Simulated scan of single mutants.
Amino acid sequence: MIWDDYPWLTMPYQQLATSILQNRAHHALLINYVQGSGEDKLIKRLANRLLCQASQDLMPCLQCHSCQLFVSHHHPDYYQITPEQGKQSIGIDQIRNMTAKVYEKSQQGGNKVIWIKYAALMTEAAANALLKTLEEPPANTYFILSDDHNSHLLPTIQSRCFSYFLPIPKLEQSVEWLKKQHDKVYSDNELASALLLSENAPLAAKFLIEPERWQQRKIFCENLLNVIPKNDYWSLAATFEHENFLDRVIWFCALLSDALKAKQKTGRYIINRDQVPLIRLLATFSNEKIFSLYELWLHARRQLISITGLNKELIVYNVLAQSELISQ
């Protein structure tokens, strides 16, 4: 089966490809996803099916000339748009260049497909330029817009698209899938923790439990067990690279959230299932202290994600110093 490697994609693909088979596919499809759900593979398969000129089934034939061009990454009627190298956004010139091409005749005599990856990164001017094309789309032309479910695309663009959220698999299914991906043996609690830290996106969890990366998290948690009783957060600065500080911020926020759950007797919703002693230690803090620490580290997360050019070293030192003040 084509989806044996990512079995949770079977149903979403069938749902979306059925409209292609029945010749009623929407000209603009917006796919939101949890990053690491296999979104790229799904979208590429849909694009392949739209371009295939021989299949009478849900799957592309993979044999016709159009399929062969697509598989070899040389299909002249397929366009993938992402931010240009060194840039943080998709500019209006990229959209204009694409628009000029899609209004031309199809070079293979079939459909044209445009995939705008990370669509929310379009500038307002670029989005407005695309809007005009979505309102009067060229014949036999299909747009696929995709982005993380936390991103914000202009409402005017969303209103012109058929929106689809790529569902994530159930936790139990993902745990079983992860067990087959690694030679290293992990406990069910470790696998569940990796998945829950990754919003249950299997590919993101697979990346997290790569031995070196997973070991970094374990060491971080072990260090927390030592520094929290002494209120010596400052010593953490020497234990990790500032470039990887965002990972630690995300992990610590999840631990603080788990501590609040433990205090509220809602342990079944805990994310870090392999770090129960650490969660219990954090739960000895008052609700006020836990909330204050959470807000502090969450603010650092927002800064690191949304603001470029920040001095990460200063952010590290500030967060650690403020953590000691809060925990007094």
Rank of each mutant, 00 (worst) to 15 (best):
M1L: 07
D4C: 07
M11L: 14
P12F: 11
Q15Y: 11
S19R: 14
Y33L: 13
S37V: 06
K44R: 14
L50S: 02
Q56I: 07
C67T: 02
C67I: 01
L69T: 04
F70T: 06
V71S: 12
V71C: 03
H74V: 12
Y78K: 06
T82E: 15
P83L: 14
Q85M: 12
N97S: 15
M98P: 03
T99A: 14
K101M: 15
V102H: 01
E104G: 06
Q107I: 12
G110L: 04
V113F: 05
L121F: 05
E124G: 12
A125P: 02
T133I: 01
A139Q: 15
I144D: 06
I144C: 06
H149I: 15
H149P: 04
H152N: 14
P167V: 11
E172F: 03
Q173T: 13
S174F: 04
L178E: 02
K180C: 04
H182G: 00
K184W: 02
V185N: 03
S187F: 03
A194S: 12
S198V: 07
N200C: 10
N200S: 07
A201T: 09
P202W: 03
P211R: 10
R213K: 09
Q216Y: 00
Q216L: 01
N223I: 02
N223W: 09
L225M: 15
P229D: 09
N231T: 11
W234H: 05
T239Q: 09
E241V: 06
E243S: 13
D247M: 09
R248W: 05
W251N: 00
A262G: 03
I270W: 00
D274T: 01
V276A: 08
L278S: 05
E288D: 14
E288T: 14
E295S: 13
W297V: 12
H299T: 15
G309S: 13
N311Q: 10
S327R: 03
Q328M: 06
